[in-house]
Design a protein around this nucleic acid. Structure first.
Lengths: 249, 249
DNA sequence: GCCGAGAATGAATCCATCC
DNA sequence: AGGATGGATTCATTCTCGG
């Protein structure tokens, strides 16, 4: 089966479609960096099944943000689904490829299970410390988002001359103006790409607004984005053509 | 069975013995805050009979840990053992008590499993960002230690007047002059105690050098420490009597 | 250009209320 | 009764704007 790109230029490709059916058509990936739907937002079914806008957004101005799909799975469903797409990503990747998956504290153990079930070698947990989070009385604030890091096989000997050293924890605030609820600061994505050699081929199977593609472009990598919602595909295309408000300065 | 304290003063009590057999004799705990051995260290005789020098020189957190993809019996053993002491701690605690357990990334999923298996309500994952870790070439540094947070039952209504707001992520380096290698910064322990009402009863079933007892004392709480190694017990007693180099300033 | 004051915001959570 | 909906709450940080 041949895929038809929704958009394509020198370094960016966007496919409009489902991750599970699209990833098996890809190959030669050096890294998979993505922020899948967490299916969090509550411990109970009725809370999870609320629309993402009402689950997650609560601001006075109520800026419009599109709904995103696939956020209603229960624990077992989330594990099974995660294992499926991660297995597909594994087969589409080259040896020693990197996998970097965002998750919140509730799904962290399930995500590490899925990563390993899919054949990846779990290497660690990175922390994105976002200082702008809502306070909770008599509780610890959940002001961290986690990134499960894994590789395809062992990394082997490294040349210390050209070696890269990256922190496992980064503090950064979400961008002021976001199209997607979960839109990441470019800084965070560039951090996660810091281990990659030049001109790597990256894939983000849950592209959203397209931050991963933009960060890859900034760093001189190629990137393939997959997104189910046409609204987000549109946004990403416009953003790639004219990255206004990209947060870069 | 009545326990005989190894040491006791107004706010601190130390029992020299095993956590599993000691905790069932305790009651009325408002919080359990501890850094258990991550591997099976302390569970088996060969670990316990190691020479004093290696116990003191080698950090407990750097102890041998099984390869992840390897034999899973150690993982299962760790889960079973963790569930046992956490269950005992649950029964020794009052309603709405807090549980705060240090763990590293490898044992984080097993720890959250054990916490929930023991009946505690998992509330989140705190991050201690310690900037003093060894860099690895071509890798993300593991510069974070995790703290699994849980409570005994739901927390219910909170009074907003007297409510406490605590961060979920803290950056702190170990004090330059440490009385003991395994010592955590007092700052970190005081952070974890920040949700507790005055004069709470805390328990650290894996006391080590006694940082938890010292932090509790600083904040006006009572604390019970349990420790298998007599050397550690001795050290803690000396430290409580004269807290030189405690990191407090 | 730098600094200080003021405003806006958050993958939240609890709880009352309605259907 | 039980599931779904909507309102109120809160502070650290960032952003904006004016002097």
């Amino acid at each position: 089966m041949t895929l038809t790109p929704y958009y394509k230029d020198g370094c960016s490709t966007i496919y409009h479609g489902e991750a599970l059916t699209t990833i098996p058509n890809l190959e030669g990936l050096d890294a998979v960096i993505t922020d899948p739907p967490y299916s969090s937002g509550g411990m109970f079914k009725n809370e999870r099944s609320r629309p993402t806008v009402s689950k997650y957004v609560q601001s006075r101005t109520k800026a419009y943000r599109p709904e995103f799909a696939g956020d209603t799975r229960d624990q077992r469903g989330f594990l099974a689904w995660s294992t499926l797409w991660m297995t597909a990503a594994y087969h589409a990747s080259v040896e020693k490829a990197h996998l970097l998956v965002f998750t919140d504290w509730r799904q962290l153990p399930t995500t590490t299970d899925a990563v390993q079930a899919a054949g990846w070698l779990w290497q660690g947990v990175n922390v994105w410390h976002k200082s702008t989070s809502r306070p909770r009385p008599n509780a610890f604030r959940s002001d961290a988002e986690f990134v499960v890091w894994a590789t395809k096989g062992r990394m082997g000997k490294q040349d210390n001359k050209t070696a890269t050293y990256s922190p496992g924890t980064l503090k950064a605030s979400p961008p002021r103006e976001r199209a997607h609820i979960t839109q990441k600061p470019t800084e965070v994505l560039e951090w996660l790409m810091s281990l990659l050699p030049e001109d790597s081929l990256i894939c983000d199977p849950f592209m959203g607004s397209g931050s991963t593609l933009l960060a890859a472009k900034n760093l001189g990598h190629r990137c393939i984005g997959v997104e189910l919602s046409e609204e987000f595909c549109d946004h990403a295309v416009g953003w790639l053509k004219e990255p206004r408000g990209s947060g870069a300065h």
